[in-house]
Nucleic acid binder design. Structure first.
Length: 781
RNA sequence: GCCGACUUAGCUCAGCUGGUAGAGCAAUGCUUUCGUAAAGCAUAGGUCCGGGGUUCGAAUCCCCGAGUCGGCUCCA
């Protein structure tokens, strides 16, 4: 016997075999009509499924593992289980609808492209996709006929019928259907479940955990949006499939609204606004991913930098400056050069043969590689143009290493590179060591990928006492990372960027308070700019991975401290295993751009490892040498990315304190230019960034131009103002155009008003982002 | 790096199935001297992303490359 607890608190005892739809019918006919699915103890289920206690329902395959823990508590059949009928108003119901629409899309594709292999087809925050592989690749030109086919299916309003099979029978079924990816998925993951669930709709059968809408007729509107490549199981070493993106709604109206929202969002895209407002540019000739800050963008950046610099000085930081390049040895010691080699610009050597030696040393030093690592290595070597004869064709690791050996031997001879030890070296390890010894003497340099090693040198440049700690070294440090071409994106993903970086060298017992102070600094910065829509992520080590450096105790210690501080501050956060930096765990602050992509901004990272690598010390009160702990932190993250997000956040209309041009004087006619120029000069004297528009245009045109440039205030000067020694103020931040004209006041009053606004860093009203993301899956990446 | 689409004047974009380019805005000049989102007229402006190829002829078709965009993978 199951007892349900309805949202209004009433309890309902169920006879065995009762379905969710029966419960809905029992509550009311109308509810049963508008019902989409049901939610039993946080698990969404089909209306047509018999209700049973959650611990049993999830024995079937594909059911989310994560519900297991919640369900185990409610195992007792006597306890009332929370139960809700989901209707069109619930965002969970929309996700169900979209998942069902994914099935319909797959069904349509199967009809039009026989032989199509299906992979996964989940709902997303704003729609759904289905990963497929068809014998003839699908293009956007095929969208209309796929949509036509889908319309036919929706019109028939056939039900989604669930049925279950044992793993072996289910495997046979998908194999008979010719669905190889599904077979692989059963073998890889689903075989641990006792039962597999399937959904049938007409001729279409799909392995699927559900749930689904009762029948296809509930789909009010849908649209195919785009097509992209996606790797099977998100693994770049597996085959690439085609991912068909689409969206669906209960009504045509909602779909239209969504499409309008997307158009609106594009208007506030920082790449569009950056061009329009002349904030920054990227030139193909200067190089991709390298931002050229135009005067207006540079002004905003400089104001942001001043803001954060003032805050740092208040908080006991010491500004430092370090160069853009550093010796390779520095980055060998820190671990950055070997670890992130493929994401860096190539090292700079004087010797013309050094690049080849360097790469061959790298390959020899890597030794025997497994299949995946070897594939990555080969791609890397090809990417940097090192084509070793016979390497790709060699089938064993021994043979490959031998090819490298013969190749570099030839280079050494041809270029007369003096590495006498190489001839004696017999193993790949010895050969690598011989090459490395020579390379180390070569004075290679690296465009710096991180500022920490330089700051560490500053720390080490003098003896440190526990009395000096914390040492807080801050710099707007520019770093370079050779991001993959496909990753580059406006200001949010670039190859050269400036971090508002600082490194704190602290005693172990200062770690907690310094971490806390830094998280508070990040929160303060975000608050000042009105960025409230962010989430906090604690990134910890993946215990199964070997990519991390340093002792286990240190990691455990660091991770515990981070958790403790965040718990203490009482902010919501999520834990991400495997997202830690290779040297330590971190706390990241993540925001979204106008089209919903998540980007990491501020970060606070704990590091017990670099102090060891660089043998950092301070003298304690016991007169003994102790190891300091490092904290890496950047409240903005990168100036470029932060600026990009800020442009979108303000839709280009920066608050007065940040606006590159704060006010513009416009004259009614040329007769008032002399007075207007005096007013302009007066404002400039008071530190305002102001210009005058003295063209022989009509006043309306000048106001329009200033408005389009998103200048916060317009100062209008005509006969009246000139006679009374006043200015008329127009506030461009007001949504209501008619209310913008604030009337005339004295120049002094306006200066005082605007000065106050700057002083307070007051935020103009911010146009809210137009796309409403599904709150249920908020910020899913 | 991978999959796909795209790249035409400073910007936004037309240019049908091959016959060597056009609009609006911006710019410049002249006229206009105007009261809160676009005055009028005129002028100038193009390596149709780059390189090959097919063709009598290529912005248009094919190949290679670069860049941008949407995803995937990666992200210190």
């Amino acid at each position: 016997m199951i007892t349900l607890k309805l949202p209004d608190g009433t309890l309902k005892k169920l006879a065995p075999g009762t379905r969710a739809i029966d419960v809905a019918e029992g509550i009311g006919k109308r509810l049963a009509q508008i019902a989409i699915a049901a939610k039993l103890n946080d698990q969404i289920i089909d209306l047509n499924r018999e209700l049973s206690v959650p611990s049993e329902t999830e024995t079937s395959a594909g059911t989310a593992e994560k519900t297991a823990e919640g369900a185990s508590e409610a195992k007792e059949g006597t306890e009332a289980i929370p139960f809700v009928i989901l209707t069109e108003k619930d965002s969970d119901a929309l996700a169900v609808l979209r998942h069902s629409c994914a099935h319909i899309m797959a069904r349509a594709v199967m009809r039009l492209f026989p032989g199509t292999q299906l992979a996964f087809g989940p709902a997303t925050e704003t729609g759904f996709y289905y990963d497929i592989s068809s014998p003839i690749p699908i293009t956007e030109n095929d969208f209309p006929r796929i949509e036509e086919e889908m319309k036919k299916i929706v019109k028939l309003a056939e039900p989604f019928e669930r049925f279950e099979r044992s793993v072996s029978a289910g495997r046979t079924l998908v194999a008979d259907l010719g669905q190889e990816y599904k077979v692989e998925h059963i073998d890889d993951e689903l075989k641990k479940y006792p039962q597999l669930s399937f959904y049938r709709q007409g001729e279409f059968i799909d392995l699927c955990r559900g749930p689904h809408i009762p029948h296809a007729g509930r789909i009010g509107a849908f649209k195919l949006l785009s097509i992209a490549g996606a790797y099977w199981k998100n693994d770049s070493s597996r085959p690439q499939l085609q991912r068909l993106y689409a969206t669906a709604f209960f009504s045509e109206k909602e779909l239209k609204e969504y499409l309008v929202q997307i158009e609106e969002a594009k208007k506030r895209d920082h790449r569009t606004l950056g061009k329009q407002l002349r904030l920054f540019t990227i030139s193909q000739q200067a190089g991709q991913g390298l931002i050229l800050w135009m005067p207006k963008g540079a002004m905003v950046r400089s104001l942001l930098e001043n803001f954060i610099r003032d805050e740092l000085l208040k908080r006991g930081y010491s500004p430092v400056y370090t160069p853009h390049i550093g010796r390779l040895d520095l980055y060998r010691c820190s671990g950055h050069f070997p670890y992130y080699r493929d994401a860096q610009y190539p090292p700079l050597y004087y010797h013309p043969g050094a690049a080849a030696v360097d790469l061959c040393q790298y390959r020899l030093g890597a030794g025997f590689l497994d299949e995946k690592k070897e594939r990555e290595m080969q791609l890397y070597l090809e990417g940097v143009g090192l084509l070793i004869p016979g390497y790709a064709e060699a089938t064993t690791q021994e043979a490959k290493l031998d090819k490298v050996h013969h190749y570099i031997l030839g280079v050494i001879e041809a270029m007369s590179i003096p590495i006498p030890d190489y001839a004696q070296a017999a193993t790949p390890t010895e050969r690598s060591a011989a090459l490395f010894a020579w390379l180390q003497a070569q004075e290679g340099y690296l465009l710096k990928p991180m500022n920490c090693p330089h700051h560490i040198q500053i720390y080490k440049a003098q003896p440190r006492s526990y009395r000096d700690l914390p040492v807080r070294l801050a710099e707007f440090g520019t770093v370079y990372r050779h991001e993959q071409t496909g990753e580059l994106n406006g200001l949010t993903r670039v190859r050269g960027f400036t971090q508002d970086d600082a490194h704190l060298f602290v005693t172990p017992d200062q770690v907690e308070s310094e971490l806390e102070a830094n998280i508070e600094l990040v929160l303060f910065v975000l608050k000042t700019l009105g960025l409230s829509d962010y989430r906090v992520r604690i990134s910890l080590r993946d215990p199964a991975s070997d990519k991390y450096v340093g002792a286990m105790e240190l990691w455990n210690n660091a991770e515990q401290t981070l958790q403790k501080v965040v718990d203490k501050l009482g902010m919501p956060f999520e834990v991400a295993l495997g997202e830690a930096a290779f040297y330590g765990p971190k706390i990241d602050f993540i925001v979204r751009d106008c089209i919903g992509r998540s980007w990491q901004l501020g970060t606070v990272q704990l590091d017990y490892n670099l102090p060891v690598r660089f043998d950092l010390e301070y003298t304690g009160s016991d007169n003994q040498a102790h190891r300091p702990v490092m904290i890496h932190r950047a409240p903005f993250g990168s100036m470029e990315r932060f600026f990009g997000i800020l442009i979108e956040h303000f839709a280009g209309a920066f608050p007065l304190w940040l606006a590159p041009e704060q006010a513009r004087v416009v004259t009614v006619s040329e007769k008032f230019v002399d007075y207007a120029k005096k007013v302009e000069a007066e404002f400039r004297q008071h530190g305002f960034r102001i210009t005058g528009d003295y063209r022989s245009e009509k006043i309306g045109a000048k106001i329009r131009d200033a408005s389009l440039e998103k200048i916060p205030y317009i100062l209008v000067i005509g006969e009246k103002e000139q006679n009374n020694q006043q200015v008329s103020l127009r506030d461009e931040s007001l949504a209501d155009m008619k209310a913008r004209d604030l009337g005339a006041s004295s120049v002094q009053d306006v200066i005082a008003k605007l000065s106050r606004e700057v002083q307070e860093k007051r935020l103009h009203q911010i146009q809210k982002a137009s796309i409403q993301f599904d709150s249920a899956t908020k910020f899913a990446e």
